[in-house]
């Protein structure tokens, strides 16, 4: 990560804003997407996240971080619309509220965008290798949506691990993006059983799968790995073992109580 020593980010300020929920979409049985209007939203880069803060009547507050799912292009000045995709965690405090309780028209506090390392824009080039586990797809989807909006011809590969077929987030949109773009390859794997007609992988991501899906290390792809801790640890280790430059492998991990 040394050669990626970033430019200092000193603006804009990361301020709490009142966001209005415009629409709530059901993505999978446990995952919902919230479309929000955020006044004075300063824009974001794909891969960044926001902090959401809830306040109870007695003043108790809880904060959690959620990745931005939308492309920056949906939040142009005057529109200021972002999407968060949130998984309901059974033991969670904030995610059950955001997936079950909120309604269109409600307002919640959020601030961002936050995080300047696990980001990709078309200016960063490629080839691009995205490896997702579960809701780890969310920041990577922002990258793919941005890439499509900008009609980028950077070759891109997505390897996406889900539990069941019904747990695949953005499945139809990913199908459409891949069908419309010769330079985008989307490969799924399912870890807890697959439908009878399933023709793709049915196991956890392993080095053989990565080698067969990702471009060769000689192509020096930029790799982004996002998912549960153990998956990110094993995939990033495997990428380095396959010969990929550790400085071109960026990781973001969702811990088990990363609510």
């Amino acid at each position: 990560m040394t050669d990626a020593k970033p430019r200092t980010v000193r603006a804009p300020e990361i301020l709490w804003r009142a966001a209005e929920i415009l629409e709530i979409l059901s993505e999978t049985p446990r995952v919902k997407s919230l479309w929000l209007r955020v006044p004075s939203w300063p824009g974001h880069r794909p891969g960044q996240h926001v902090d959401v803060r809830l306040t109870a009547e007695d003043g108790y507050q809880a904060e959690r971080s959620y990745s931005l799912a939308s492309a920056p292009e949906t939040a142009l000045p005057g529109r200021e619309v972002i999407e968060l995709t949130i998984e309901r965690l059974g033991e969670g405090e904030v995610s059950p509220y955001l997936t079950e309780e909120v309604r269109a028209g409600d307002r919640i506090e959020l601030r961002g965008p936050i995080g300047g390392y696990f980001t990709w824009t078309v200016a960063d080039g490629g080839p691009l290798v995205l490896v997702a586990g579960g809701t780890g797809i969310v920041p990577l989807m922002s990258m793919l949506r941005h890439r499509a909006q900008r009609r980028s011809n950077v070759p891109a590969w997505l390897l996406y691990s889900s539990r069941d077929f019904d747990d695949i987030i953005y499945r139809e949109e990913l199908d459409r993006l891949a069908a419309a773009d010769d330079r985008l390859s989307v490969v799924h794997t399912l870890t807890r059983g697959a439908p009878a007609e399933w023709s793709s992988f049915e196991r956890r991501i392993d080095p053989e799968m990565l080698a067969s899906v990702a471009p060769r290390p000689e192509m020096r792809p930029l790799c982004y790995v996002c998912g549960p801790t153990e998956m990110v640890e094993s995939v990033s280790n495997a990428l380095v073992d396959l010969g990929h430059d550790p400085e071109r492998v960026k990781t973001e991990r969702f811990g088990p109580s990363g609510d």
Partner: peptide
């Protein structure tokens, strides 16, 4: 900005020892 009260938000993870958990944690 002033806090927005989140309707029906109770909070399930109030710290057992509030003096040991910093704000927002």
């Amino acid at each position: 900005m002033t806090g927005i009260i989140s309707r029906r938000f109770g909070g399930k993870r109030r710290p057992a020892e509030p003096g040991r958990i910093p704000p927002g944690q």
